[in-house]
Design a protein around this nucleic acid. Structure first.
Length: 583
DNA sequence: GCCGTTTTCGGCCCGACTGTTTTCAGTCG
């Protein structure tokens, strides 16, 4: 059982205990423990064997016992018993906005309701409104919430959330009296998926701004409308017809409160709590309006002032997860994070030769237009027939074409590459002689996703160790909100990459974002070189590299940890060096 | 259930909004 599974079970235990009416402090301990496990660096089993689990902050004697049982036996009687006692439908009910553990418990105990369907029927017949502490409005809200839950999932991808947020910001700009405005929350922290949109505005005249917000085009429901805070459900349809529905909250504060509110609403919740605890240690109180001590308030114009007042360097939003950023900010050891402008080229891109929409030259020129110094190809290999993978003959034809385009685009590097399939047994889809004709090789898994963990790990490790493999593509194969990652011991893969100098790709396609930020941190610690690839299938897809930069930043990466911050000449030299290694 | 410059018990972040309430609990972020 790996970290993700253990973490999910701990979080579920926390939720189940909430539904039993347990103290919030106890249930919180499980949620904290879940987070601690998920963000643990290194192999969980190894940490247990070394007896270091109890040293992890947030894991005490009880959780240590439970986690050890889970990992060593694969199950936990305490958890199994909880699941038997609490119907799964109650957990589903928690997804309904406005329904928390207390209300769900009340509904279950007084009306014996344990599924969403029974809840709907009870609301429609007016039974719920009669319950103590409930009423007609609550019942109506639950019905709306049931519809919301059935129509949309909880989270959307970052690119979709940003697009919806941009629309709201553009609409709000037409209101007068806005002094400062910023999208906060998980969008500002660049989480790969987001639940809602948190907007913050400073103004002396909040009224008209609130009015504008609740009547923006696309607003389908107003769920809250106060003088300083409003909430709406907003819906936009993309050019390709995808309907995106999200909650959006707007807070309006006087400008003097802006930095405090900005910090507060950016989160994460855990980072915010850690900051408030730090304020308390300084005999100060921090909330969304001020940082204050007895009888005095500390003025701050920006977030940087706020951090400084607590003895901290500025912590970039991407790092605010309470995973060590406070200590680093205090010791002045925060990383100087890689930036979009540091990226000088990209590899792993597709053309019309396989499943891309544009020619080699169109892609290369688009890359040049983005300000890159180089562009690398990564069309699919022969066994991936569904994506029109290249046979050796077609590889040679493409390489001839590249030679021709190179002549036309002097001063711009075009690197010959391939996204070569890792076959079922870990061997590669081309023979060594053909692989030697490329400047670099991206090796990826595109088949047999359901292999058992040991097989998949051995398969990928074998490919990573292949001397012709420059970088591993798609480290996990996940499709955000659609397909889970395949079962693989990523720590073993990263270790293998570290051992033989193979790079690991941060796949920047916002549908994928293979290699999450937690493993970025781990890779960095092991000395693995990372590379940000857009996996572009058209000229427009090249710009997605920015989402990879977001992941890298969340993974504490600096410029030096990312291969494609190097110049085109340096990259060419590195490839030449590696090609000798492979012979 | 965790934790300790308040250390083995007694705390545990903080405020807005809503709905159902005559003063506040529940939810949310």
């Amino acid at each position: 059982m790996d970290k993700d599974q253990v973490s999910a079970i701990l979080a579920e235990i926390g939720t189940l205990l909430e539904l039993q009416g347990e103290s919030g402090f106890r249930t919180n301990a499980y949620h904290n423990g879940a987070r601690a496990v998920q963000q643990l660096e290194g192999d969980l089993g190894e940490v247990i064997r070394r007896g270091e689990l109890g040293d992890v902050p947030g894991i005490g004697a009880t959780l240590r016992e439970k986690i050890t049982t889970l990992v060593t036996t694969g199950s936990l009687p305490f958890y199994d018993k909880l699941k038997e006692e609490i119907p799964a439908g109650l957990v589903e009910m928690l997804r309904i906005p406005g329904l928390g553990p207390k209300k769900v418990k009340a509904i279950h105990e007084s009306l014996e309701i344990d599924t969403l369907e029974k809840l709907r029927i009870a609301c429609e017949s007016g039974q719920v409104a009669k319950l103590k502490g409930f009423g007609a409005k609550t019942q109506e809200k639950i019905l709306e919430g049931l519809k919301f839950v059935s129509e949309v999932g909880n989270r959307v991808r970052l690119d979709q959330a940003m697009w919806v947020a941009d629309g709201i910001v553009a609409g709000l700009r037409e209101a007068s009296g806005i002094i400062r405005m910023e999208v906060c929350g998980s969008i500002r922290r660049r989480k790969e998926t987001c639940k809602d949109i948190d907007l913050l505005v400073s103004s002396d005249t909040p009224g008209p701004i609130m009015e504008r917000f609740v009547s923006l085009p696309g607003v389908i429901t107003v769920t809250g409308h106060g003088p300083t805070k409003s909430s709406v459900v907003v819906q936009r349809v993309t050019a390709s017809g995808t309907r995106i529905t999200m909650n959006a909250d707007l807070r309006v504060v006087p400008d003097v409160h802006f930095p405090f509110a900005q910090h507060y609403f950016t989160g994460s919740k855990e980072h915010g709590i850690a900051m408030r605890l730090r304020a308390i240690k300084h005999d100060l109180k921090l909330n969304e309006y001020e940082l204050a001590g007895e009888g005095h308030s500390i003025p701050c114009k920006t977030e940087a002032d706020l951090f400084r007042a607590l003895g901290l360097d500025f912590i970039p939003p991407e790092l605010r997860e309470d995973t060590g950023e406070m200590d680093a900010a205090e010791r002045h050891t925060l990383p100087k994070l890689v930036e979009v402008g540091d990226i000088r080229g990209v590899f792993h891109n597709h053309t019309v030769y396989s499943d891309g929409a544009n020619t080699v030259e169109e892609m290369a020129r688009a890359a040049q237009a983005l300000g890159f110094e180089y562009f690398g190809l990564g069309d699919h290999s022969q066994s991936l027939t569904v994506a029109n993978g290249l046979t050796p003959d077609r590889v040679r034809a493409q390489q001839k074409e590249v030679d021709a385009v190179r002549k036309k685009m002097k001063g711009f590097h075009i690197f010959k590459g391939t996204e070569c399939d890792i076959l079922e047994d870990g061997s590669l889809d081309y023979d060594d002689d053909l692989l030697a004709t490329f400047d670099y090789v991206v090796a990826s898994v595109h088949s047999f996703f359901n292999q058992p963990r040991e097989e998949m790990t051995a398969r990928i490790v074998r490919a990573v160790r292949h001397p012709r493999v420059t970088m591993l593509g798609h480290a996990t194969g996940r499709l955000l909100l659609k397909r889970n990652r395949y079962h693989v011991d990523l720590d073993a893969v990263l270790q293998a990459a570290a051992d033989c100098g193979t790079m690991i790709e941060i796949n920047a396609d916002p549908h994928r974002l293979d290699l999450d930020w937690v493993h970025c941190k781990r890779a960095k610690a092991l000395g693995v070189l990372l590379v940000i690839n857009p996996d572009a299938h058209s000229t427009g897809g090249l710009a997605n590299f920015r989402f990879g930069v977001d992941v890298a930043r969340r993974g504490w990466l600096e410029k030096r940890h990312v291969f494609n911050t190097m110049s085109g000449d340096a990259v060419a030299k590195e490839f030449a060096k590696r090609s000798k290694r492979g012979t």
